[in-house]
Design a protein around this nucleic acid. Structure first.
Length: 211
DNA sequence: ATATCGATTATCT
DNA sequence: GATAATCGATATG
């Protein structure tokens, strides 16, 4: 048996390519909807479908961490595409991004909400909450801080990790899912450039954050 | 249902 | 010293 041509249709999925991320963050953000974030460690296997993201446009975007140029914190954004940019905010939360565009350009996509597919028990443990009913599932992965906690993502462990390689233990897989309807709205929680519509979400998903 | 606020710290001015 | 791409708790209608 050779390599299957239909890997994207199978139950295995395959990591997105470097080329997928080497594009405009708006394009990457839209196409990330329906893809699957996967975490594999000795302890756990977690998978969740991406249902809400935001695009950040690099140095020309006042709301982006790269707006003031390269610093020690945001260095990953200026590196090659497809790598995790993890930052710590409000003294409490980590947030996960993936770097986009060619090396030297600092665009990225922020992961804002996921739909749990596998490893719900472990996500609940990582979050420190109990899941009593299906209605509690969004508390695991709706919101950038929550999803990062559910996946046990930290800056020390995950910043700079290669999201196009399963060998990294954290990657993004394509299972061939294409959301029916995508909505585009202004970004959440920012004060600058808050009029730009750069938030992309799967219409009708109960797992999106906010209203 | 919406509004306001405190927590808590890395990062930058 | 001020700020921040958030969350969860509390208060109020």
């Amino acid at each position: 048996m050779g390599k299957s041509r239909t890997t994207t249709q199978s139950g295995v999925g395959r990591p997105l390519s470097r080329a997928f991320f080497a594009r405009d963050p708006r394009r990457v953000a839209r196409e990330l909807l329906g893809k699957v974030l996967v975490r594999q460690t000795e302890r756990e296997f977690l998978a969740a479908r991406i249902v809400e993201v935001e695009a950040y446009l690099g140095e020309k975007d006042p709301a982006a961490h790269a707006a003031a140029g390269r610093t020690a914190r945001n260095a990953v954004l200026f590196g090659p595409p497809g790598h995790a940019y993890v930052y710590f905010i409000y003294g409490n939360h980590y947030c996960l991004n993936v770097s986009c565009e060619a090396e030297g350009k600092a665009g990225c996509v922020l992961f804002r909400a996921l739909e749990p597919l596998f490893g719900v028990e472990d996500m609940a443990r990582n979050r420190g909450v109990k899941v009593w009913s299906l209605g509690d599932l969004p508390y695991l992965t709706s919101g950038p801080g929550r999803l990062a906690e559910a996946f046990a993502i930290t800056r020390a462990r995950d910043n700079g990790c290669d999201l196009t390689s399963a060998a990294s233990g954290l990657w993004i897989a394509d299972f061939g899912d294409r959301p029916r309807h995508i909505r585009v709205t202004p970004r959440i929680g920012i004060s600058k450039a808050s009029d730009k519509r750069l938030r992309y979400l799967v219409e009708g998903s109960p797992f999106v954050s906010g209203r």
